[in-house]
Design a protein around this nucleic acid. Structure first.
Ligand SMILES: [Zn+2]
Ligand SMILES: [Zn+2]
Length: 779
DNA sequence: GCCAACGTTGGC
DNA sequence: GCCAACGTTGGC
């Protein structure tokens, strides 16, 4: 220990990036022209975390426990400056931080060689390192093709890169020819198509719901994972999905299928790109080079590295399609997509050596930047310096890279967590090598929390009872695309109180998701959680959360979650949503996914309320998907409207009438949705467009302009009051139920209700039909 | 397939 | 030679 401390004090180097930069400047090697160039180019990225320029990095980049010039904070446990061992040395780290051009994904430095590299150098030349003669610096101009696009270019580009598949918004029409595209509905003059079955669409026929679905953007950032080891990867690597504001009007009458189909997800790229500088993902999202393939951050090891470790070898062999995994987690910090395939490519050995050493460290995340062992985790306790027996020989849990560590998803030994029940105080157990006899199965569950910072994992604590619980119902809903290539797999795991969902897109062959709008369609949605997990962690904005206040609830408990009026928690079903302030700040809107009705297992249950539509019971089982929307970088310029945005912002800061939610969608269009199924306005949308002109639609049917409600309100909803007033007015109305179609289809088909062509749609709550539908004139 | 145990090796 | 910790092995 003394030895340790001495060594520590004797080594001024540190991984602390803040120290690294000055150290760099003070070193002998001159800053070459390329360096200058790099710095200049980087200056415009000053606000971006992870971008390291000559200036000091932002505070958040510092390790949590700051060690200033070797003055360690007082800790109760042995503390040693960490720059030894397997991971890249402090020098490497420093250089990695300072010499890496994150913007371009290239190393700007004279690469410090590993031992093998050194030996190579010694064989050949030898002094290039020590002499300060830098290895040839990459000339950015010479390697444009390998440079990742800049963040901004990504932001402002709606096009896809050839290298990186991007999803484009799914058109509902593309999904189902039977469905109207809401856009068309909203943007075109009202079509008098009302003499039509209310539930004529196949989708509606089966899954008619009153609950709004939220259309999500496209996935553009996803970590492509190999499907070769789907089981093994567990949940190691982060899924990075950022959701965009919907580019489609949100239909309140979307079916479950449509819900899924609408879940095109866009990544606005790194959230850090938000111009306001607010870091949503401070600790979790290093701003490294961005993998051209999967988009995940990684540390380029050499100039020209545009692919992360996981993607590079694979890509060289064959393009690997995305494997997207959505996971609901008990305490979601983020979900992950895994691409685990990673093997020596047999190429540059030096390169491989570096990869091998660095592969478990991104060197940018909070864990990698952390210098101190926590001294409390199982791995720490295993260390001899903490009195352990050195059996595990792993890095402190808190220092396991958030992105690269293999150990994420593995159980943390919670022996030391006093909060856990039935904790054995005894440190295990001298046994023979290998896994002890104790039965442990829990860990392998994909819905398990894999965040190692979270000591609430249940698994080690699983008793027999727990295991029994674990054997709760497992619901699976698998769907295959017609093409059979991609499919969603939904898994429902019901454990006692909790139900989790896992949704997976599997894709077995190279393809661009955006080329397949069906990819997200045709599958029934699913999901439910009896427990709301609140997650407002810093990683919150990164993950894709499905938050569902599910449960077999009484109808009055049907959930809806106000998005913008967050402070109004309907029926205690708040979930993990960011406080509106945060959401606004972060540029993220988080809408929860709300399962309205009973869990999937109850799809066939009797309708609770038979006096409604035939498909009423299906409504009960219908989830309402809500999602996280990034407001940042989402809209192109043409989709921005200052006035609308201001209104949107103010709406977000206002308590709207119960269960109304506002969403900004492409157009731009500000949409107000009633999320509560219980509301008579459940299927009503108010769309406010540029100029604050608005339109009210019910079940995708625009109100006729002659509708009385238009006369009661200003032509333009320019202010908050106008909007609220309209919503309150709407809440006093009901939806015309239409009239029963005289001609029935097949006996097994639901009854069809139709509306008159000039149906008022919205009528007094006291009435069941509007005048036109009461005395329909069949045409 | 998981994961405790431990061989191994880069970095110092 | 020591330390840190990564990758592998083999019991379960
Ligand atoms: Zn620890
Ligand atoms: Zn990391």
């Amino acid at each position: 220990m003394t030895d340790e401390l001495n060594r520590a004090s004797a080594e001024p180097e540190t991984m602390n990036p803040e120290e690294a930069v000055p150290a760099l400047l003070s070193e002998n090697h001159p800053i070459g022209a390329d360096d200058v160039t790099a710095v200049e180019e980087n200056t415009e990225w000053d606000n971006m975390p992870g971008i390291v320029t000559v200036e000091l990095p932002p505070d958040w980049l510092k390790p949590m426990e700051e060690d200033e010039d070797g003055v360690d904070s007082v800790r109760s446990i042995p503390k040693v400056k960490r720059r030894r061992g397997r991971p890249p040395s402090a020098r490497n780290v420093r250089q990695g931080l300072t010499r890496l051009d994150f913007k371009k994904g290239i190393h700007m430095d004279r690469t410090r060689r590993t031992k093998s590299a050194r030996s190579q150098l010694e064989i050949t030349k030898h002094s290039s390192l020590s002499s300060g003669t830098a290895a040839p610096l990459p000339d950015p101009a010479r390697t444009p093709e390998v440079l990742p696009r800049t963040i901004q270019s990504i932001i402002h580009s709606s096009t896809s890169t050839p290298q990186r598949p991007r999803l484009t918004p799914c058109s509902p029409a593309g999904v189902s020819s039977l469905s109207n595209t809401p856009n068309a509905e909203f943007n075109s003059p009202p079509r008098l198509t009302r003499v039509s079955p209310l539930s004529i669409d196949t989708s509606r026929t089966r899954d008619f719901i009153h609950s709004p679905s939220v259309k999500v953007g496209n996935v553009s950032q996803q970590i492509v994972s190999s499907s070769s080891e789907p089981g093994k990867d567990g949940a190691e690597l982060p899924l990075r999905l950022w959701l965009y504001p919907s580019l489609e009007p949100i239909s309140p009458t979307k079916t479950q299928d449509a819900l899924i189909s609408d879940q095109t997800v866009i990544s606005p790229d790194f959230p850090e790109t938000r111009l306001n500088g607010t870091m949503a993902l401070k600790e979790s999202h290093p701003m490294l080079s961005k993998c051209e393939n999967c988009g995940c951050p990684f540390s380029a090891q050499k100039p020209g590295d545009t692919l992360c470790f996981r993607c590079r070898p694979k890509l060289e062999k064959k393009y690997s399609p995305p494997n997207i995994v959505f996971r609901k987690k008990p305490h979601p910090k983020y979900t992950k997509i895994v691409n685990k395939d990673y093997a020596p490519d047999g190429g540059d050995e030096d390169d491989w050596a570096q990869k091998k050493r660095n592969r478990r460290m991104c060197r940018q995340c909070i864990a990698c930047l952390r210098e101190d062992d926590c001294g409390k985790c199982d791995f720490c306790m295993d260390k001899p310096k903490y009195g352990g027996s050195n059996k595990k020989r792993q890095k402190c849990r808190l220092r396991q890279c958030k992105f690269e560590s293999k150990l994420h998803g593995q159980s943390a030994n919670r022996t030391l967590n006093p909060s856990l029940p039935r904790r054995r105080n005894v440190k295990p157990k001298l046994k023979r090598r290998g896994r002890p006899a104790r039965k442990r199965r829990f860990r392998s569950k994909p819905w398990e929390d894999d965040d190692d910072d979270d000591d609430d994992d249940d698994e080690d604590e699983m008793s027999d009872k727990d295991n029994d619980e674990e054997e709760g119902r497992l619901y699976k809903m698998n769907g295959s695309k017609a093409r059979g290539r991609k499919k969603w797999n939904y898994s429902f795991k019901e454990e006692d109180d909790d139900m989790f969902i896992e949704a997976v897109i599997e894709d077995d062959e190279p393809s661009n998701i955006e080329e397949d709008p069906d990819i997200l369609s045709n599958e029934r949605s699913m999901m439910a959680s009896n427990v709301m997990y609140s997650n407002t962690s810093g990683l919150g904005a990164q993950g894709l959360y499905y938050n569902m206040p599910g449960m077999p609830v009484a109808p009055h408990m049907l959930g809806s979650v106000p998005l913008c009026n967050n402070n109004q928690m309907p029926l205690g079903e708040v979930i993990g949503s960011l406080p509106m302030d945060d959401a606004t700040q972060n540029g993220f809107l988080q809408i929860e996914m709300v399962r309205v009705g009973s869990p999937p297992s109850h799809f066939t249950e009797e309708p609770q309320n038979t006096q409604h539509h035939v498909s009423e019971h299906q409504q009960e089982a219908t989830p309402v998907i809500t999602q996280i929307f990034s407001l940042a970088a989402a809209e192109s310029d043409c989709d921005r409207d200052q006035g609308l945005m201001e209104l949107f912002t103010s709406l977000g800061q206002t308590v709207l009438p119960a269960h109304w939610v506002c969403v900004m969608a492409k157009g731009p269009v500000l949409q107000l949705l009633q999320c509560s199924k219980l509301s008579t306005m459940a299927d009503t949308i108010v769309q406010i467009e540029k100029g604050f002109f608005y339109q009210v639609s019910v079940q995708n049917q625009p109100l006729l302009l002659m509708h009385a409600i238009y006369s009661r309100h200003p032509t333009c909803l320019e202010t908050l009051d106008h909007v609220v007033s309209l919503l309150l007015d709407l809440e006093g109305l009901g939806v015309c139920q239409g009239y029963q179609s005289p001609d029935m289809g097949s006996p097994w088909e639901p009854r069809m209700c139709v509306r008159a062509a000039l149906c008022d749609l919205l009528i007094s709550k006291d009435e069941e039909h509007c005048v036109k539908c009461t005395q329909p004139v069949e045409g």
